[in-house]
């Protein structure tokens, strides 16, 4: 086996390194900066040039080496390279080759381009480790342009009625994807501190985002009529929001596909927007790798494995500690930055 799982994480014995380990290790290859993949405490990190700044921002003073997409690197008896995963800016699938056997750990990925992240590239391999956060056929995403048009229409209608539009989205990835794709001419855009901090990191590495105004205790919403307010999911429904008065609230997530979840969030609107692949995306991506062996992690692993096995793959469940697109646990790093 090129890759296996230890108590620490996904492990490559030939190169003696881990991928996205969940307990401290000597050498960690990191797919992207989300908290369940990039954890503190490793002796050395390797990540893409584009992912490193956010990881540094979140983990503080850690030893990170960086690498470009597609650039091969020898580690022990293994050759590794990073390839775009299309999940968030800088996110990568990690290709590991040992004695002619190629395995790919995909981290989190989505197949449709989002106008911000480096678009997903299928990487031919023998074994593919795939997430399946939305690995059931009820999950199918509408084209991004349509979702953004819905968000624009909601924002414009609220602005016309003199109400703020508060939209909950994750601080890394989702928030910037929305920023980069909404019609910024509709009104001013205000941001929660955790989102603005990530914006600053991404702007500094050259990503083009429209102007935003960070919400501080001194912010008076009356100075910004018709604003779109980007909030972290955990800030929705808290005192932080009260300053915006009778605002319209919304939440952007793949889970908004389900009416039950939409209603439970008690937001006025739910926009179906995910940074993970939908059912068709997962199946297309897996097919494109040409892999015979597929290991499935975080998500609907049991049914997805059975489905893949029935399609003729040598499919297994890989127990990991990644969390997918969580609805109920606020990201602890967001809490800290808030």
């Amino acid at each position: 086996m090129v890759l296996s799982v230890t108590d620490q994480g996904i492990y490559c014995a030939a190169g003696d390194f881990h991928i996205d380990p969940w307990r401290p290790v000597d050498r960690a290859l990191i797919t992207h900066g989300h908290a369940d993949h990039a954890r503190p405490g490793h002796r050395a990190y390797l990540a893409t040039h584009a992912a490193a700044p956010v990881i540094r921002h979140r983990l503080g003073d850690v030893r990170i080496e960086t690498i470009g997409y597609g650039e091969p690197r020898r580690i022990g008896d293994a050759t590794v390279s990073f390839h775009p995963a299309g999940h968030v800016p800088g996110s990568a699938q990690i290709r590991v080759e040992v004695a002619g056997q190629v395995w790919v750990a995909s981290g989190d990925y989505k197949t449709a381009p989002d106008g911000l992240s480096e678009p997903f590239e299928p990487v031919p391999c023998h074994g593919f480790i795939t997430e399946c956060t939305f690995g059931l056929p009820v999950f199918s995403w509408a084209p991004q342009a349509q979702v953004m048009a819905d968000i624009d229409a909601w924002w414009a209608a609220n602005a016309a009625e003199g109400r703020a539009s508060v939209l909950g989205a994750y601080a890394l990835g989702k928030a910037q994807r929305i920023l980069a794709n909404v019609d910024a001419a509709i009104g001013p855009i205000l941001t929660h501190g955790a989102i603005e901090a990530t914006n600053a990191v991404l702007r500094a590495q050259g990503l083009a985002l429209p102007d935003t105004i960070q919400v501080t205790p001194e912010t008076d919403p009356r100075d910004h009529p018709g604003a779109l307010v980007l909030a972290t999911p955990s800030a929705l429904g808290t005192p932080w929001m009260r300053r915006f008065g009778p605002a319209s609230t919304a939440f952007a997530s793949g889970w908004m596909q389900l009416r039950g979840v939409r209603r439970r969030r008690a937001a006025d609107r739910g926009f179906v927007l995910s940074d993970h692949a939908d059912w068709d995306g997962l199946n297309t991506a897996i097919r494109a790798t040409g892999a015979e062996t597929v290991l499935v992690t975080h998500g609907y692993t049991a049914p997805f494995r059975r489905w893949l096995a029935e399609q003729g793959y040598d499919a297994h469940v890989l127990s990991t500690e990644y969390e997918g697109e969580s609805l109920d646990t606020p990201d602890p790093t967001e809490e800290a930055a808030a």
């Binding site: 059931l136 056929p137 009820v138 389900l258 039950g260 609907y300 049914p303 059975r306 489905w307």
Partner: peptide, 11 residues
Amino acid sequence: WLFEECYPVVG
């Protein structure tokens, strides 16, 4: 069987 897996998720 896959349909039946979806049903409790959707509710």
